[in-house]
Design a protein around this nucleic acid. Structure first.
Lengths: 252, 252
DNA sequence: CGACACTTTGAAGACGATCAACGCCGGTGG
DNA sequence: CCACCGGCGTTGATCGTCTTCAAAGTGTCG
């Protein structure tokens, strides 16, 4: 299952790269497992920041309520990803977002002090953390630029490609891992716009029927989306999609 | 002058907090000064990443050309701020943006290896760097959300407030530090929209005449902008503006 | 004075948001 | 087994905001 990280797989995370097994064990001992069932909140906007999280299983929605009562999804985070590192490193007292389990979730929970202490103790960990955050910052930058420059259809197509890569789906056919409502909100558009957009995407090589997506014409998608993207040449998603299209091995 | 950081002031940067004077000197020895005159490029999109920069004097525009030939300003960075840390930490080979001096600029230039080496060597530096990047990531997140939720006039008003704080201007009256063309592009809107928006802002307590801005009614601005902002309660700019409005001491 | 960069203003158009209604489906309870 | 309901998604019509194209105004500097 692509949404599960076995406990031992945490060891394989890039965050712990370059550390000895002993050091990893030492670090991981600092956390404890926590279970959440679908719909349960891990924390709420305004709650004091108490932990750093590594998601071991399941999917978590990070969202915020705007002053006018709407609900905006900041991100959807899955197993193998982390939460709250930037809040902790930025020394935020309180959470800036809500976190809700979209399905049954298992997280590894580390006390706030753990993160900085570990960075202080193991310089390799500090450097990994730095790359990790820098990478996130980069992604955020790219998304901001895309949102500004591309239109809805391109944003959606690009997002579907990223989804393919993140969840290791077969582009030829896969199921959306969560509801269209949440996806739309994640991309920053209204559900109605998203719905209409999906319909139009068949002209560009993406066919959507219910929650089943098949990217029928990778070349067409790339030409439609990536040609309009200023980071195309060094876009990891773009590269990965090209790899997937040459390797004809899909693991459904 | 608010756009100058004397060499010794680099010592005072948060990035070097918690280090002894000897350690600071040791670190700073790793860099060398470079001058750029107005219009000169520090680096171009696609150039290999060769340095980490601390801006000591002047203002630098970071921008990118979109596929359709437009020019989009990613950020405008001034003395006391840094450049390229995330590229380096993300191990990017090539620059993702262009950097051009908007006026006469002095930067401190450190070789790429310096950043990671220093982080490895001094854990305090690594932690400072982590906060620094986390903070940037936070700002980027906030801006993204604002761009999605607020309308042009609110974005502009918010930006002017931020400018006030960053440059330590007196809200009651100050000059825009760079051209409206660049500001508009920085905020992500067309120059025409920006121009029209400025005119409309007088209804909300901001008067603009040429490049002279005066925020006449701070309360009105806050109510118009910050009330629509989801991070108002923990927005450093908002807080700082309130402080400025109580301290009736402006330093023009 | 003229050239040029920068800014303003006007009018038309594109795009997504919003409001409203309907279809679909799974679940619950009679 | 059917009727009802609520969550989710689709479709249609309208509206507001920003962009785009075009033209004219302002300022500076040789």
């Amino acid at each position: 299952m692509s949404t599960t990280v076995a406990p031992q797989t945490i060891h394989a995370m890039l965050l712990f790269a370059g550390l000895s097994e002993n050091e990893k064990n030492e670090l991981i001992k600092g956390g404890r497992l926590r279970q959440c069932s679908r719909g349960e909140h891990l924390f709420l906007h305004g709650d004091p920041v108490k932990s750093f999280y590594i998601i071991s299983k399941g999917t978590v929605q990070l969202f915020r309520e705007t002053p006018d009562g709407h609900e905006k999804t900041i991100d959807v985070v899955k197993s193998g990803q982390t939460m709250c590192e930037s809040e902790i490193l930025d020394s935020c007292r309180n959470h800036r977002v809500n976190a809700m389990a979209l399905n049954d979730v298992t997280v590894m929970e580390f006390p706030v002090a753990w993160l900085k202490d570990s960075a202080r103790k193991y310089s390799a960990f500090a450097l990994n953390l730095l790359s990790h955050i820098a990478q996130q910052a980069h992604m955020a930058e790219v998304e901001a630029e895309q949102r500004a420059n591309m239109k809805a259809a391109q944003l959606v197509a690009c997002f579907l490609q990223r989804m393919c890569v993140l969840y290791d789906f077969d582009p030829k056919g896969f199921e959306l891992p969560y509801s269209k409502t949440i996806i739309a909100s994640r991309i920053g558009m209204e559900l109605e716009t998203f719905s209409r957009t999906l319909a139009k995407l068949k002209e560009h090589g993406i066919l959507v029927k219910g929650s089943h997506v098949s990217i029928t014409d990778l070349a067409s998608v790339e030409q439609y989306v990536c040609a309009a993207c200023s980071i195309a040449e060094d876009c990891p998603t773009h590269k990965e999609m090209e790899r997937k299209s040459s390797n004809k091995s899909g693991d459904a």
